[in-house]
């Protein structure tokens, strides 16, 4: 079985070379690092089995012998219903009901509420190399936590070339051609007190339907290459305050060399988002040329985004003011003399 599943999504423009992948399976052992406090009562047995499905299933009727529509691909959750049913029948029936279920190629069995199974049943699972994991949480909580964990593990992911920085709490990804100065901008932002998430290789993961979370790779963490200097470690150089491990992606800033004929946003009323991992992300295309301070502009982009998120859209307010002014106008008043912001410069000459 291949390691990953390739999604057939092809975008034009900035992300045209990006592949969208997701895990085609995870091993049962990885569930042990989920937040469910699992304990494997079957020891090391069945931990290498593959889980290929992110859903969960409660066997219920299948335990009674009706296996016609039994969905055995997902992890099987044994909650109160299953356990109380098993406890309501006598031991030999219990063993045969459980053995009957194990005839199917189950990925693993999960017991909620710290339920206990007979040693004979556990031995049956061991014989079939199926792990039994026990969690102290109730079924509702288990379902919630495990669904979230599996959703993340099977989520669509992409590796993006760029610098990912938290600017005033807004996750900005700087993208653009190699050598245009993405790392230098990230460095400058860190110097001004912002926090680096990852440089050069950013792993983006889709969370639920409309959120993208970004992080670096385990190997690279917060190392960075600055051309002409070499590799530096931001965490060592600027301290723990200068980094973070994960951040939600909110804005993509594409840097490009200034081209005379290209049209750049002037007012900012109708901005087109860009798609990544099938999610719309705010997008700014920024021309760069000598003497332009991208760092400050990045801070302005972040602040403007915050203002908009909290309901203030400068471009819209300005447009409204202009329309108001045009409406008010009757005939011959001069736009400058009659509309000076300060009506009368008093003798205070400051």
């Amino acid at each position: 079985m291949p390691l990953f599943y390739k999604h057939e999504i092809n975008y034009m423009g900035l992300f045209k070379d990006i592949q969208h992948l997701s895990n085609s399976y995870i091993v049962v052992e990885s569930l042990l690092s989920s937040p469910l406090k699992f304990e494997a009562v079957t020891g090391n047995f069945g931990l290498n089995k593959k889980i290929t499905n992110k859903n969960l299933h409660r066997p219920q009727l299948a335990l009674t012998g009706y296996v016609e529509l039994f969905n055995y691909f997902p992890c099987q959750i044994f909650g109160n219903t299953e356990i109380f049913y098993l406890n309501s029948i006598n031991k030999s029936e219990r063993i045969s009901a459980f053995a009957n279920l194990l005839e199917f190629d189950l990925p693993c069995i999960i017991l909620t509420n710290a339920h206990i199974l007979d040693q004979e049943l556990i031995q049956l699972a061991i014989d079939k190399d199926v792990a039994i994991l026990v969690t102290p949480y109730d079924t509702t909580k288990t379902t919630f936590l495990l669904t979230e964990y599996l959703d993340d593990q099977f989520a669509m992911q992409a590796v993006v070339h760029g610098s990912f920085v938290d600017v005033y709490g807004v996750g900005i990804l700087f993208a653009g051609k190699s050598g245009i100065g993405k790392s230098e901008i990230a460095l400058d932002l860190v110097e001004r007190g912002h926090r680096l998430v990852a440089d050069d290789v950013v792993m983006m993961t889709k969370k639920r339907e409309s959120i993208i979370m970004g992080t670096g790779t385990n190997l690279v963490q917060h190392f960075m290459e600055i051309r002409g200097i070499g590799i530096i470690d931001i965490r060592q150089m600027f301290g723990i305050r200068s980094i973070r491990f994960q951040k939600r992606l909110e804005i993509i800033v594409e840097l490009e060399e200034y081209v005379q004929d290209n049209e750049y946003t002037r007012i900012g009323l109708d901005e087109e988002p860009i798609k990544l991992l099938d999610v719309d992300i705010a997008y700014v295309k920024l021309p760069i040329f000598p003497g332009k301070n991208i760092t400050v502009i990045a801070e302005v982009i972040a602040t403007n985004y915050l203002l908009r998120t909290y309901g203030y859209n400068a471009a819209k307010i300005f447009t409204d003011r202009l329309q108001e002014e045009i409406k008010k106008k009757k005939g011959n008043n001069n736009p400058f003399f009659d509309n000076r912001n300060v009506k009368f410069f008093q003798s205070d000459d400051e």
Binding site: F4, D17, Q19, S178, D199, D200, V201
Partner: peptide
């Protein structure tokens, strides 16, 4: 030309040293 190196489906930019080392 833009250059990429692909491993296990993920591609990285061959002009980025951090990327290639990843």
């Amino acid at each position: 030309a833009e250059a990429f190196i692909v491993r296990d489906g993920f591609s990285i930019n061959a002009k980025s040293i951090i990327g290639v080392m990843t």
